[in-house]
Design a binder for these strands. Sequence first.
RNA 1: GGGGAUGUGGUGGAGUUGGUUACCACGCCGGCCUGUCACGCCGGAGGUCGCGAGUUCGAGUCUCGUCAUCCUCGCCA
Length: 592
Amino acid sequence: MKGLSRTHYCGDVRSEQVGEEVTLMGWVQRRRDHGGVIFVDLRDRFGLVQVVFSPEVSEPMFEVANDLRKEYVIALKAEVRARPDGMVNEDLKTGEIEVYATELHILDEANTPPIFIEDEINSGEEMRLKYRYLDLRRKPMQDNLILRHKVKKAVRDYLDSNDFLEIETPILTKSTPEGARDYLVPSRVNGGKFFALPQSPQLFKQLLMVSGMERYYQITRCFRDEDLRADRQPEFTQIDLEVSFMNMDEILSLVEGMIQEIFVSVGYDKPEDFPHITYKEAMDRFGSDRPDMRFEMELIDISEVVKDSQFKVFSGTVAKGGQVKGINAKGCADFSRKNIDDLTDYVGIYGAKGLAWIKVEEDGIKSQIAKFLSEEELDNIVSTMGGEAGDLLLFVADSPKVVAASLGNLRLKLAKGLELIDEGKFEFVWVTDFPLFEWDEDEKRYVSLHHPFTMPKDEDMDLLEGDADKVLSQAYDLVLNGIEIGGGSIRINDSELQEKIFNLLNMKEDEIEEKFGFLLEAFKYGAPPHGGIAFGLDRLVMLLGGLESIRDVIAFPKTQRATCLLTEAPSFVDQKQLEELSLEVDIEIEEE
RNA sequence: GGGGAUGUGGUGGAGUUGGUUACCACGCCGGCCUGUCACGCCGGAGGUCGCGAGUUCGAGUCUCGUCAUCCUCGCCA
């Protein structure tokens, strides 16, 4: 660094330093050449400061300043001066001063960057990902990573003060059945065998409870080889924790404290309300197990009202065990045919075969289904739906699953379109009382809704014999603004009950022994009651930052095809590497 | 695996019913300028229109295929 030693960050120079000599380092944001004087905005992580180069100070230095271009890395000595009258820049934290360069060194030249280093996004995401290191020079991206850091620090401070220990668990671990597809890692030493990257540290954290660690946490990477979304990456970060000797309510209030600490530490109001809703109620009222509580527009069941109607689409669906539900789009009676057709297409994505509508207008009802319904039935429907003049009532008749998915998502779409959502608001809700099992039609067996280590509710234990699909679990999800940010459960700590659950999942004795024998064995040596939860750090930071995608809070995220545009991973490997790993690749490798 | 959107100089976009030399902004290069801060002014360079076929006298534009990025259904214990 040409023997210089940095004395200040660019963004930190203030009027107090007027008259002092400072040594600054950073990147050239912009150069303004006025012939006789050159201004350079110098940028580092902490801000911008205006540097003035004058030939009167040093002719050779001025010549060097002439060669400066965007993103050159420079070091300089300069005198801090107050700006002349009327020259103060209100938009800059350092706007009251400028620094007069006395010595200038170019530490590294720079090619013209392919994307602009500006606060506003001026490039497509493909460019931003390919040149991620440049995208990360932009202040909004730096702010996102700073926010992420603050959240992690708040988590560590809070959990540390509550006697939690941060303990690492293996990244190379064992493939498990159930759940998401594993990322596999071949073992060279044990040819033909594979490690799996963890989908979560679930089994290890339970073993740590058997070890008597009592309170464990870890901010750790998890891997799932499934298709990506705006809020799903193949590797993502969990705030994972587990405690012994706490019941569900105690765990929930413990983590509510953590959430409060996080919010306060990043400058938001402390959230106070963490209401509870059961899974069933969430599905009934919102058509989702992660309801967005920032607005109303709940789903209303009209099955009883229409079950005997002449309109076969409604009555027939009810007769077959389906349901008819609707939502009331307040004030939307002026929607055009085209609008409604679009909404019909939209619910089609979720399997709905149609979307019935009723417009409630001053002079009566307008509806494509009015002719199939009696006046009394129509009146009944409108009053059940709370319909008033100006409202648009929208209905789906189908299986409960399709009704929930289509109306639940329609509710969200309408709310966004009608701007019913206060974007500055944070609304939490705990979803509890999840079913323990779900019937898998493809595999013709029960699968765990949460995971196989989840404790059934005490009062449902006897239902395990014969009525397994009715058993509720001691599982809980924390939902924020319609996004699941955390989920956990009280775990089974009894090897006999655990074996019974495995059996209900139709797992064979030898499979249980091979996959989970070590866990069942561990539970025979005194396992404390325990439970825990894992938060999706990326999603949480995304929400706190008011962002649309977790890619914006991950330094080097993957594309939707699960590739890295920067490193071009994944890639083919040498034949020699494959041979060492006892692997053969069964696809044509295209010539470069 | 399915549905949808997008792809045009370095970047972001426009490009009509298929028809002269593909346009604009920013950026870049050169010149001028001692108070700018998205500096200004003058001049200049820079394009296989993602890729491959097809239709046509003629394709950025139409058709088919393919690749990439994004949104999404399935999937995600």
